[in-house]
Simulated scan of single mutants.
Amino acid sequence: MSERKTGKAGEIRSYLIGYGLALLLTCAAFAAIRWQSFAATTTLAVLFALALAQVIVHFRFFLHIRLSRSSRDDLQLILFSALIVALMVSGTLVILFNLRQRMM
């Protein structure tokens, strides 16, 4: 019985740490935009780094994908997620450039 409680407590602790880190990274991204203390390209690089860190936090704490084990399912999940993100970003850019072209 104590093993089950310890496992559940550890899992809840892991979720709370992940939530705290995700909240901290989100606040840092908003702060980087709100208080612009760097050049625009540096701010963009900081945002990309914070976004990458956020993805790693979500993979580690919420999806339970760890670097120690190399499972085929985990690799497929990461590749599929990257594909979906790439499709969304490229589709958004196509739409925005098309709208810009039509407005000029």
Rank of each mutant, 00 (worst) to 15 (best):
S71N: 11
T26R: 00
T42L: 11
L47F: 11
R4Q: 11
L83I: 01
M104K: 10
R60F: 07
I12E: 10
R102T: 07
T6Y: 13
T41L: 13
F48Q: 07
T41F: 14
L63K: 12
L47A: 06
F61G: 03
R66W: 07
I56C: 01
Q76M: 14
A82H: 00
C27R: 07
L67Y: 06
T26C: 06
L79T: 02
L93K: 12
A29Y: 03
A45I: 06
L67E: 11
A32H: 04
A86D: 03
L24H: 01
M88F: 11
K5G: 02
L79G: 01
S70Y: 13
Q54W: 09
G20C: 07
A40E: 14
L87H: 03
T43C: 04
L63W: 10
F62C: 03
A49F: 11
L79V: 05
G7S: 14
L25S: 02
T42C: 08
L23K: 13
L63T: 10
E11K: 14
L93W: 15
A82Q: 01
S2R: 13
I84Y: 01
S2Q: 13
F59Q: 14
L21D: 05
I56T: 07
T6H: 13
V55M: 08
S37K: 03
S37I: 14
S14R: 12
G10V: 08
Q101N: 08
C27D: 07
I95E: 08
L75A: 12
L79Y: 04
S14T: 15
T43R: 09
F80A: 05
T41I: 14
T42G: 02
L79N: 04
Y19W: 07
I65A: 02
A51G: 09
K8P: 02
G18I: 02
E3S: 15
R60C: 05
Y15F: 11
